[in-house]
Nucleic acid binder design. Structure first.
Lengths: 195, 195
DNA sequence: CACCCTATACTCGGTTCCGGATATTTGGGA
DNA sequence: TCCCAAATATCCGGAACCGAGTATAGGGTG
């Protein structure tokens, strides 16, 4: 059975172990500290499932079971050679090949015609406000990270997200205006259906 | 137990049943015809699970079991009043509140420093090419739909996706240049680590 | 020094998801 | 008329996922 590149949490595990051996709980802590959990969903339940799956595929291996102090016993894992290869291959694939994803907003906006135009406008404006807040929060964070002397490469994904958020906001602004003024194609029919 | 708005396929089911009663297989066909499966992931296995879950929560109800011709028996479902309310509420939420999502590309690009700069540049350029193709394909499709006389509101989500894709491409173009010329912040260290 | 709160380190059970099977029927050509 | 491919309609078993629970230890407080 070959390893399937589904859960990105497995990628995070490989990336962390490529620095040094760790036990699962430590991985979680490190992800927290580095704000990695903003980019890769972290869930304790999944973490242990994922680690076990990586071990079964021999991409990582248990390197020791410590019993520091009198804490519950814990297993430290290390990356294998196959694991390093998998890490690099997966990374290449993630960047090179656009994955087919299903953003929830696309699902929502595709059915916006089911809401009366007036309500639709209201929720779009709510989203605009929320996006605005996210953008300023991001800008503040970027400022702070740059100020701390961290190199841009260390927070490159935030830079990317900022660009995408700006585009979203621009589109939404257009859509809100077009709805308000009734200039979006098919508006008359839309209006009529909701009476 | 209250209904959890996880799988958007359930939203599609509610939306379809808000038009008229259908049996599951017919829902799938209709989604195909309308290219809805581009926006909402459709999987036969999940479809029946989701329909059963909606029925348990009384958002839809079995309205008849036909046996047309001699086909295997099939159950036709209709939306309930609670279902209609759920559909509208969910729709509002999807549009108004930006969901925390985890795009795979963000995960990938956040770890790009693990690849040697030269390789990173290569995969980024591959993605740029792929994005270019997606964009022209989208443009062709939009042209076609507009030509068929469909109102803009019927393909509003494609309009949105186009805007986002353009922003992605612009950002990637910048990143490729900055990598090629070594002007991305932290480049020297990056170079050095891979020797 | 008794107490409690938080941090540590998992574990577990129920739900959800999904990729194939499975079983029947219709339509169309040889 | 017979046969096969495609369409119809659903089901199933295993994998993955996730939230909540458990159990111990250290550290601060009155």
């Amino acid at each position: 059975m070959t390893f399937r590149r589904t859960n990105p949490l497995a990628l995070a595990v490989l990336a962390l172990l490529s620095e040094r051996p760790m036990h699962p709980y430590e991985m979680a802590q490190t992800m927290r500290e580095r704000h990695q959990e903003e980019v890769i969903k972290l869930n304790y339940g999944s973490l242990y499932t994922v680690v076990e799956s990586l071990r079964r595929h021999e991409l990582i291996a248990a390197s020791a079971t410590q019993k520091a102090g009198n804490r519950p016993e814990r297993t430290v894992y290390a990356i294998t050679e196959a694991g390093t290869a998998e890490l690099h291959g997966w990374l290449r694939e993630l960047i090179a090949v656009p994955a087919k994803e299903y953003p929830r907003f696309e699902a929502g906006i595709s059915l916006v015609g089911l809401l009366p135009p007036h309500d639709a406008l209201a929720v779009v404006e709510q989203r605009l406000a929320a996006l605005g807040e996210q953008l300023t929060a991001l800008a503040v964070l970027l400022e702070k990270l740059a100020g701390m002397g961290l190199p841009q490469l260390a927070w490159i994904e935030l830079d990317y997200r900022m660009a995408v958020l700006r585009a979203e906001r621009a589109w939404l602004t257009w859509f809100a205006t077009a709805t308000r003024e009734g200039t979006v194609g098919g508006y008359d029919d839309w209006e009529e259906r909701h009476r």
